[in-house]
């Protein structure tokens, strides 16, 4: 039967014929790099050294677990990803990977990474990794993301677990230091993403994701960025007073916090007209700087740990 409409309608994307890079992209490599870095710092600053081979394997399995959570997120969010400029080229909405494949990869890699981390390191670390995957894939992606403007605040916990997992790999437990490293990423996440939401406004509105900018307005979002930035300062500086901190970390933390607070104050003061006129320059600068902010804090923790054997790091 020759049906004209059937010929003119584009065929549905069946997926399954992407190349390896498409399947790798399901694991959100950029997010994975942050997971690897913070987990590695958590592992290396711990007071108990881990065997290099176990540390290498543990970081790899943590990265795979984080990537698996990313694949599950892409599977669930394929419908809204297709509506947003920033995400519509992802493998599932672009039709290069079938949704079922992403689900299978996410589930299989989740199970494999948790079991392997348990066998390679310990079951506390494996339990934390399992909880992280569950939190990101179910609590954040399936439950909160489309329901509450607090999605970023609570969902941020998922990205904050890796340093705790790294610490648990080395020590087999949880401690105030690892909780503080968790809090650094947890409190850092909302102002980082809200700054992004300020300058990619149309995307989230179009997809119907209840970002704070959509539900409470842009003025309230600017105020929230400042409030969370002020809350972040005592957390990051407080970490410097624990056994993982030291003078180097503390100096870096104070300087970075002054800079970030200045940026947040600037964002708070700006009107929407000013921001639109200069193409959201301050908001974009704050977003970019916040990435360096997190990287340098964890880098400073690492520097303290590296200096310690020479009697220079720590208190």
């Amino acid at each position: 039967m020759s049906d004209t409409s059937a010929r003119t309608t584009p065929p549905p994307a069946i997926g399954g014929e992407g190349d390896f890079a498409d399947y790798f992209a399901l694991l959100k490599p950029r997010v994975m790099s942050l997971v690897v870095f913070t987990a590695l710092v958590g592992l290396l600053v711990a007071p108990v050294p881990a065997h290099p081979m176990i540390a290498l394997a543990a970081i790899l399995f943590i990265a795979i677990g984080g990537g698996a959570a990313g694949a599950l997120n892409m599977w669930w969010d394929a419908d809204i990803d297709a509506m947003m400029q920033r995400t519509k080229a992802r493998p599932i909405p672009a039709g290069r990977v079938a949704p079922g494949e992403a689900l299978a990869i996410g589930v299989a890699l989740s199970g494999m990474s948790v079991v392997m981390l348990g066998l390679a390191a310990n079951w506390v670390a494996a339990g934390l990794l399992a909880f992280t995957i569950f939190f990101y894939a179910v609590v954040y992606t399936m439950w909160l993301k489309r329901r509450t403007p607090q999605n970023i605040v609570i969902g941020g916990a998922a990205g904050a677990f890796p340093p705790m997992i790294g610490w648990a790999v080395a020590t087999g437990g949880v401690s105030p230091e690892s909780l503080l490293m968790f809090l650094i990423v947890f409190v850092w996440t909302p102002p980082h993403f809200w700054a992004l939401a300020l300058f990619v406004r149309s995307d989230y509105e179009h997809a119907g994701v209840p970002m704070l900018t959509v539900t409470h307005g842009r003025r309230a979002t600017r105020a929230h960025i400042l409030a969370y930035t002020l809350l972040l300062a005592p957390v990051t500086i407080g970490a410097g007073l624990t056994s993982v901190g030291g003078p180097v970390y503390l100096m870096v933390a104070v300087a970075l916090n002054l800079w970030l607070i200045w940026g947040a104050l600037n964002i708070r003061r700006r009107s929407e007209e000013t921001a639109t006129a200069d193409g959201y320059r301050a908001e974009k600068a704050f977003f970019r700087f916040s990435i360096f902010y997190l990287f340098l804090h964890f880098g400073a923790l690492l520097a303290e740990a590296a200096l310690r054997p020479y009697g220079l790091g720590g208190w």
Partner: peptide
């Protein structure tokens, strides 16, 4: 590309298990 990627990933996995 897929077959080579999966092959290399499996080889790396075997190497990690052996090392562990």
């Amino acid at each position: 590309s897929r077959n080579r990627g999966v092959g290399l990933a499996l080889a790396a996995f075997v190497a990690i298990i052996f090392g562990l």
